[in-house]
């Protein structure tokens, strides 16, 4: 049983997409997205998006990395395998700074990449939008708005009329298996 999953409309320019995004936002849609092959300045505000929380994930991971780095070295050199090198104290934290720093950066970078993928719900290779042939131009020169069918305001006819009224072309309903 095929049901509508989303509706897409294409726009000619980044500016057109930006103004259309403001209209869609003001109309009260919440589950929509604006697709382009490069990030467009001002689009976050035009869509009414909140700030990305990624910085907190990365900060947390970086602190964790530093703690793990310093903790590992401190535990190994004082508890598990205490050896004296060049008459230095067992707990010579100055010498551990570099590895601590490296672990901070390493954990932070993993937090960045994995956190970004998590927030973007990637990888996801089977999104319904990929069934549209026209949508493939999104990574080249296409600009699209997609409104998902489970948006509370979604209505097959009214949404199509609305998208046409704000300058959308080639309006297409994307169908998929019912969830």
């Amino acid at each position: 049983m095929k049901t509508p999953r989303a509706m897409i409309a294409s726009f000619d320019t980044p500016g057109g997409l930006l103004h259309a995004a403001e209209e869609v936002r003001d109309k009260g849609y919440t589950r929509f997205d604006c697709h382009s092959s490069f990030p467009i300045h001002g689009m976050d505000d035009a869509m009414g998006l909140k700030r990305s929380p990624l910085g907190f994930i990365v900060g947390g991971m970086a602190v964790l990395g530093a703690v793990v780095g310093m903790g590992l070295q401190g535990w190994v050199t004082t508890v598990d395998y205490p050896l004296i090198f060049s008459g230095k104290p067992l707990w010579s934290w100055q010498a551990y700074i570099i590895i601590t720093f490296a672990m901070l950066v390493l954990f932070g970078a993993f937090g960045t990449v994995l956190g970004m993928l998590f927030l973007n719900r990637l990888p996801r290779w089977h999104h319904p939008l990929f069934t549209s042939d026209r949508f493939a131009s999104v990574t080249d020169d296409g600009f699209f708005i997609s409104i998902e069918a489970d948006d509370p305001k979604f209505d097959p006819e009214q949404t199509a009329a609305f998208l046409a009224s704000i300058g959308g072309k080639d309006i297409e309903t994307i169908e998929g298996e019912a969830r």
Binding site: D33, M43, G55
Partner: peptide, 16 residues
């Protein structure tokens, strides 16, 4: 990874 170029993705991507 199934990149769709949506601004909801670009937003986190740019911060990343």
């Amino acid at each position: 990874l199934g990149w769709r170029g949506g601004n909801r993705q670009w937003q986190h991507y740019e911060v990343a």
